[in-house]
Design a protein around this nucleic acid. Structure first.
Length: 577
DNA sequence: AGAGAGACCGCGACAGCACC
DNA sequence: GGTGCTGTCGCGGTCTCTCT
């Protein structure tokens, strides 16, 4: 039975299962929260869950885990690649066997590129990584068989080695000569019109993101992976390969606290002045056999979902035995494959304004696995705000509205659509609310799920910051009802904010820090807007200003004397009001 | 010219897991 | 259950851009 009562409980946040963490992705969803919503709003008798912006596929995986059928849609082929390979089962035996074969073929050739000399034991051993500063080799990090882990300045041996690699043809460094056709991506970090990616700094092409050594090491490894005969195994190893290409790039800063590994920590193609050049073979070993590697991910998948099956049509999905999923690489607004009134529950995490440029960021992985054909259209059509592409928030809103119009039509009547949000900007949240509500959905409520714990720093700011997730819950009505909305005026909004905040304080019965007020405001604000047939049509970044404006008249900010609360500044109702 | 908003990036915290 | 390893995330000082 579909449960019509709302979710109220606070679901503690948790990390992701290893099947999801194998491949980095931007904006991954909270697995536990998704589970709770799927359990709450659907039944495990083969009901269909749809995620129209499926990204890395966490929603699809969780739906299958809970015995539902799932449809995942994404405009980006890299998202579909990640989802498909996350949910593809491969036996452990096949993974290990193939890994050993690859090891025998290319390990020595690749490792030799990173050779360094250990003064302690006198041996030539492969370094785990080198660091580069100001375009020069800086230090080397290796594990000496006698002396353990070492971080030392590079020597002439290392510089000579690198120059030799750069000045020789590729083949002279590898034992297997002549037969190999090495390829690496050289795609520009520019749109087809010639403008630079919004999220790009100094580098211009994909190959600029790598040292020459890492470029040829990756090319060699990729060439070997492409030779795997069985297509499912080949795809899985390609997936493992894709999961390391960013770690082999120059966008991996050196951090003293972590001398032997790094990660791509910025959501951009950024220039890092002091970066790591990691040993590609060792990265590959981790990507396949490591604790976040392919082997572990497939073990986890097998435990979590038994007999998983991907189908190729909606008809097959209906007829399939559980658990099955259907992936569609398409723009949701152009989608014709799914009939109207056919889906039982929609849960999705749409793109938030301009905060993450998915198309640009997934481009790196798409380039290496060579699935960028027609990608210009993806960059143009993705629902995102991007000033370099002349897509402002008005266009973002228009694209969102078209998407939700389609989403509305696919959902069965009297069924639910949950839209998740963890963006701090009320204006973006408001655009989303407006887009959804104007397609005909009934607004049920906003549920705020706080994070597992607030960061220590945020506790000491009077204004605080917004954290955690909002879940907006909408329902498709039995019959269309025409609602006419009128814009709220800024005076009305001001009055409401004061009123809602006071009510929150009265209900709590004690002074609260700003961020708790802000987090609790949304559910009331949107309920009230909806009930009054009002829309917020201007940029509502005035909440803080409004509250600041009434310090002394409506509110007072007091020093914290409550021992149990770690916050320094608390808000309360002014004595004068 | 100054203010405000947003992007950037280094730092440090955090969480899951392996190993002891 | 403590410790180390690894990838991820959030904060906030600082820089940059835009608007008035």
């Amino acid at each position: 039975m579909t449960n019509s009562s709302p979710i109220e409980k606070v679901v503690p946040s948790q990390g992701h299962s290893s099947m999801y963490v194998m491949h980095k992705f931007f904006g991954r969803k909270q697995e536990r929260l998704i589970q709770e919503y799927i359990k709450h709003y659907t039944h495990d008798s083969g009901e269909i869950v749809l995620d129209p912006f499926c990204g890395s596929g966490v929603t699809i995986g969780e739906a299958l885990h809970l015995g539902r059928k799932a449809i995942g849609i994404d405009i980006n082929p890299v998202s579909i690649f990640v989802t498909r390979n996350t949910l593809r089962y491969i036996s452990h035996m096949r993974i290990v066997k193939e890994f050993r074969a690859i090891e025998a073929d290319v390990k020595n050739d690749i490792s030799n590129l990173y050779s360094t000399n250990c003064p302690k034991c006198g041996n030539i051993i492969p370094a785990t990584c080198f660091s580069w500063q100001d375009s020069k080799l800086f230090d080397r990090r290796y594990v000496c068989p006698q002396d353990g882990k070492k971080v030392e300045k590079v020597q002439s041996f290392d510089r000579d080695r690198y120059n030799e690699i750069q000045n020789h043809s590729i083949d002279s460094f590898f034992n297997s000569k002549g037969l190999l056709n090495y390829w690496f991506p050289e795609n520009p970090l520019y749109y087809s019109g010639g403008k630079a990616f919004l999220k790009k700094e100094r580098y211009d092409n994909i190959d600029d993101l790598y040292t020459y050594r890492n470029l040829i090491a990756l090319a060699k490894l990729l060439d070997r992976i492409k030779k795997i005969c069985e297509s499912d195994l080949r795809e899985s190893f390609l997936f493992a390969f894709s999961s390391l290409v960013h770690l082999a790039s120059k966008m991996t800063p050196v951090r003293p606290s972590r001398p032997f590994s790094s990660s791509w920590i910025q959501p951009s193609y950024w220039y890092c002045p002091h970066y790591m050049e990691s040993n590609v073979w060792q990265l590959f070993e981790r990507a396949v056999m490591g604790k976040q590697g392919l082997y572990r991910a497939k073990k986890d998948l097998k435990l979590k979902i038994k007999h998983i099956k991907e189908v190729n049509s909606i008809e097959e999905l209906h007829e399939a035995t559980l658990p099955s999923f259907f992936l569609i690489n398409s723009n949701i607004t152009q989608l014709e494959l799914i009939p109207q009134n056919s889906v039982d529950f929609i849960i999705t995490d749409p793109p938030y304004g301009h905060s993450i440029q998915y198309g640009e960021l997934l481009y790196l992985w798409g380039a290496w696995i060579n699935i960028l054909e027609g990608y210009d259209d993806i960059l143009r059509n993705e629902i995102i705000a991007n000033s370099r592409q002349n897509k402002d928030l008005a266009i973002y809103e228009q694209l969102l509205r078209q998407a939700f119009h389609k989403i509305y039509s696919i959902l069965k009547r009297e069924k639910y659509c949950t839209v998740t949000f963890h963006n701090p900007s009320l204006s973006i949240r408001n655009i989303l609310y407006r887009s959804v509500i104007q397609t005909g959905f009934l607004f049920e409520r906003v549920v705020y799920h706080p994070p597992a714990r607030a960061s220590a720093k945020s506790l000491f700011q009077p204004e605080g910051s917004q954290q955690g997730d909002y879940f907006f819950i909408f329902k498709k009505p039995l019959k269309e009802e025409k609602r006419i909305y009128r814009p709220i005026t800024s005076e009305e909004l001001e009055e409401w904010i004061i009123d809602i905040v006071k009510n929150i304080l009265i209900a709590e019965g004690k002074p609260l820090p700003y961020n708790q007020l802000q987090n609790q405001l949304d559910p009331f604000l949107y309920k009230k807007l909806y009930e009054s047939n009002l829309l917020l049509t201007f940029n509502p970044n005035e909440v803080k200003k409004t509250m600041m404006k009434f310090i002394g008249t409506e509110f007072s900010v007091i020093d914290n004397t409550y021992k149990e609360s770690p916050y320094e500044k608390l808000w309360w109702i002014s004595n004068d009001s």
